[in-house]
Amino acid sequence: MGGDRTIRETLRGWAFLAPLAVFILGFVFVPVAGTFIDSLHREVTFLPRAFIGLGNYRSLSSDPWFWQSLRFTVLFVLVSVPLELVLGMAFALLLHRPSRARGALRACVLLPWAVPAAVSGRVFELVCNFQYGPANYIAERLGLTVGPVNWLGSAWGAFFALVAGDTWKTAPFVAVLFLAGLSAIPGDLYRQAAVDRAGPLQRFTRITLPLLRPVVVVALLFRTIDALRVFDLVFVLTRGGPGGSTTSLSLYGYDAFAGGDVGYGSAVSVVLFLVAFALSAAYVRIGRFGRGLS
């Protein structure tokens, strides 16, 4: 409604925003700030709280389990995110094709997204189970393995079980995003490309991919951040095992909290927060987020 607004109007606008601000300040920003402060304290059950500066961080730097969980988390992001994007793209292309069953297909693809990670974790836990899991029969039938394999008992087996579980649950979300991007590409472009005798592959690399770039950046950002802070699936499927080899940073922080060391857990959380923050900032710069805004 233009300029020349009065103080009263500005106040009214802020009043509309106030409940939101209260919630987000009170239950997100204050806790995050609290976590930063806690990370500078000795905050352990039954011990008096004491300021120890960077003490927790010093302990972190010489804690092999922390480095192990950082390594796992980064590896998990690097392996699962590209897989999810590729699979999501394949799904989106399949879903985009006109078909009578398109609605039903979309509903099917959306289902894994809606399943709670706690549930899918349990399902994949059973799938990989040494005694009962179908992963073993299938692998054996395909001639990949001889005899039952204890997938969750080996570091690599557990890692790939997690990647499989995460990909299953999140590739559909990526597919939905890409599908929206695909629908926004004018069909005329493809018709023109067909007139120009571009083959399917050329059409994909010359038209689809470049026009989909903004959506790809969004999906990449969301997926990277989500994979970086992975907790539910790891907690349920491997509980960080075997031997701590699949403990994500979130889980490591949680374990510290659950073990009563809030200060140490906070320090782990702060590290994760900073990594996530730095990555988001980098993406925002690269992807020039919110150009269409304001």
Partner: peptide, 21 residues
Amino acid sequence: FSALAVSMFPQVSLVGYLFRL
């Protein structure tokens, strides 16, 4: 944009403080 930033926060960085609160 702060709302967008908030959705990037790891949950674990809130939960310790929330527990104490």
